Amino acid sequence: MEISTCTEKMVQIIANSTLEKSLKKTLKEVGVSGYTLFDVRGDGDSGDQSGHLEGDSNILMMVVVPLKTSQNLMEALNGYLKKGHHLMVFSVDAEVLTPSKFG
């Protein structure tokens, strides 16, 4: 049996939880219809993010979108960096079993 898949982009955004509302608005503005959100902990350039204190917790947002939408999203996220926000953004090709609603 042959399985039909399509290639899209998976964009992962790690940011301080205080940016959650703003990031959700940005996703909507660039045409992202859905996302997955996790509370995450870690250690890196911005220090230990344990999640024990307000402002000391991070979120991970994951979206799967067509290439054009991912480019628009990356451009919008770059605006956060220019304003001095600390984000870690990854974009990778994803083989998707369920095609995007954006066609």
Rank of each mutant, 00 (worst) to 15 (best):
G103T: 02
V40S: 02
I59T: 06
G44Y: 02
S22F: 11
K68Y: 03
D43T: 12
H85S: 08
S17I: 15
K21N: 14
D43V: 13
L81K: 07
S100R: 02
A15V: 07
G84Q: 02
F38M: 10
V40A: 10
M74C: 10
G47F: 06
R41G: 04
V89W: 05
L87M: 04
L53E: 11
S22C: 10
G34P: 06
C6E: 15
M62G: 01
C6Y: 12
S4K: 15
S46Q: 10
K25S: 13
E95M: 13
A76D: 13
G34L: 05
G42P: 02
H85A: 10
G84H: 04
S4E: 15
T5R: 13
T18A: 12
S4P: 01
K25I: 15
K68C: 01
E75L: 03
D43C: 09
D39W: 07
T26Y: 01
P66I: 08
D43A: 07
E20V: 02
E54H: 05
T36I: 03
S17A: 12
C6T: 14
V11W: 08
F90Y: 15
S57L: 02
G47Q: 06
T98I: 14
M1Y: 02
S33L: 05
Q71E: 14
S100V: 09
G55M: 04
D56L: 03
I14V: 15
M62T: 15
G51L: 05
L19F: 03
T69G: 03
V64A: 06
K82R: 14
F102T: 13
V40G: 05
N58Q: 12
I13C: 09
G103F: 13
G47Y: 03
G51N: 05
L19T: 10
T26E: 11
H86I: 00
E95D: 09
G31P: 04
K101Y: 09
S46K: 02
